[in-house]
Design a protein around this nucleic acid. Structure first.
Lengths: 334, 334
DNA sequence: CTGAAAGCGCTTACAG
DNA sequence: CTGAAAGCGCTTACAG
């Protein structure tokens, strides 16, 4: 192991040039002649030189690091998002500092890390804490983007799926199937995402003169959704259709409906989720879902955020990425 | 938005102390009197000061950043790992720089980023590239730990599950169920993890005088495993049990066995995976699996890696974390 | 305990 | 195009 890293100073000595020349050879667009660059490169290769990004960050006050705050990666939508974000940001020369914010590691600690490491921008993909963190980042002058959620607060960009439209599409689908007693399992009460999906769902039911037949809160968790489902099925007239605010909860509901209660899906009860995560497509799950294209959402997020870096005056945008209803066996027998 | 961050110099002026004093107030264990510290803290709070971790890294040559290289987060084992690693590293004052290495973003680019950002240590949790990257990091003097894989190369620590023992346990389980034609779906051929699981599986079968009845390579991918399963079922005498090198592939196999071929699981064919990921426990999947405790593995990894930082001379260890066989409906009817 | 000063490894005006 | 020099925001011997 060679231990210490070579510095620009050492490369300069080896190449017989100034340290500035070394820096220029590694700075895209810097004015340096081809011969000089060649000499620098040769020496750099020989010494295994890599510019120190930390030192570069200090002088440019650009870390080229984006803080990504996630939580609850058990929901399979987020791993896909993370992978896509990583790809899109790397392609644009940025890296991801991954923070997982949970109850223990609260908003304050997360904010502290974000600020100390001088991240260039922040992507918030965590249900909880997001609003507070978004405010705090804005106050510190860091561009923020909410992923899969939004906020009324000004100056905060967001990328979301078609929550309201998707909720409506699922209601219409249930209605078309002849279901009359549709229930909803909400995510977290103060989540804009869950509220919008519910709103659309209610609108879709209302078009057919129907009202919600039951409603429980699953908190976006597997166990929470399972319990919510038990509550719904305990009613005198149990629902004949359930829309859960995301696939993760819908899959929990499916387990309870089929295995705890021995009901037939979709015969006795139709089921739908949101996100179209991979498990939804597994034959044994076959969950009807409104798709959110994680890749496209990530691309838009990376693009929007980095353009905010270049043009701070840019108007902050709330982007909605189109999805579509994917009908599978959980709502309609093949 | 306040725009620029306060510096130690500004805090010092506001508090009427030297800049060194400000630094000491924020350095655990530095010699500073209580009154001085109080004055500094007051001024720091008023200015919203947070020490610049970038500048600190430059002078201490410790970034307190651990590079985590992952790939294919679609396998649900890795999101759990990532969450656990993040928790364990944050608890020890370190952050995660997340790199996703795929074909496009190859080993060279990944190594380059790791080195430029001067990460303190690297955790490799990617099937491909790991060996090359591990070598390169060692050559650069960066502590490396392989997660869920190992290598013959010296100086590389690793944390794995009980691959060989687990493979053997699954073979014995199949044998106890009276299965005589057990097949294996490998991950990637040159993956130590897949090889060890296979080795244990063969040993377990051999104990009962059985040989492998079929073998295909799934490449750890869903589609690859589905295709591997089709091949296995196309044989004259199809297998009556399949062990896939991980849950992700076992679930793909389950879809093919039940839905493409209309066979009964476990009646016609018993199925087992490895990892005990969350979907394995979903009632509609109910996959028998050998558990790998992601949380415990992450704790050990964080601990081992950070102790290597403090004591570079420390002997590098290969740790194996105990798991256990979880029997579910895919192999044994309830 | 406290402060003045050197220095970490770069980028980037400023001259030439 | 090229080099000498200042400076990014810290930590840490070195004196006192």
């Amino acid at each position: 192991m060679e231990g210490k890293h070579a510095t620009a100073e050492e490369v300069a000595r080896a190449a017989g040039v100034s340290q500035s020349a070394v820096s220029r050879a590694f700075t895209p667009g810097a004015s340096i002649s081809a011969p000089l660059r060649a000499r620098v490169n040769a020496a750099a290769d020989a010494l295994g030189y890599r510019p120190n990004a930390i030192a570069r960050s200090l002088i440019t006050s650009r870390s080229r690091i984006v803080g990504v705050v996630a939580a609850y990666l058990h929901n399979h939508f987020y791993p896909s998002v993370l992978e896509a974000l990583s790809r899109e940001l790397q392609a644009r020369g940025h890296q991801i500092l991954l923070l997982t914010a949970d109850m223990a590691q609260g908003a304050d600690a997360t904010l502290d890390t974000l600020l100390r490491y001088r991240v260039d921008a922040v992507i918030l993909a965590s249900v909880t804490l997001s609003s507070r963190l978004a405010q705090a980042c804005r106050a510190a002058g860091i561009p923020v983007l909410l992923f899969n959620r939004t906020t009324r607060a000004p100056g905060v960009a967001s990328v979301t799926g078609e929550n309201r439209i998707g909720g409506r599409a699922i209601a219409r689908h249930f209605v078309a199937l002849g279901r009359r007693r549709a229930a909803f399992i909400a995510g977290v009460e103060d989540s804009s995402t869950s509220r919008e999906r519910e709103r659309g769902f209610l609108e879709g039911l209302a078009e057919a003169g129907l009202a919600l037949h039951g409603r429980q809160v699953g908190g976006y968790r597997y166990d929470g959704a399972a319990e919510a489902t038990r509550q719904l099925l305990r009613q005198r007239h149990p629902p004949d259709a359930i829309f859960a605010a995301n696939d993760h909860m819908a899959i929990a509901a499916m387990g309870v409906v089929r295995h705890d209660c021995g009901l037939d899906v979709p015969g006795d009860l139709a089921l739908a989720g949101f996100d179209d995560t991979e498990p939804a497509a597994w034959p044994d799950i076959a969950l009807t879902s409104y798709a959110q294209p994680a890749g496209e959402m990530a691309r838009r997020a990376a693009e929007a955020l980095l353009s905010m870096l270049d043009r701070p005056a840019l108007t902050v945008r709330r982007q909605v990425v189109a999805g579509r209803l994917i009908i599978r066996g959980s709502s309609q027998a093949a």
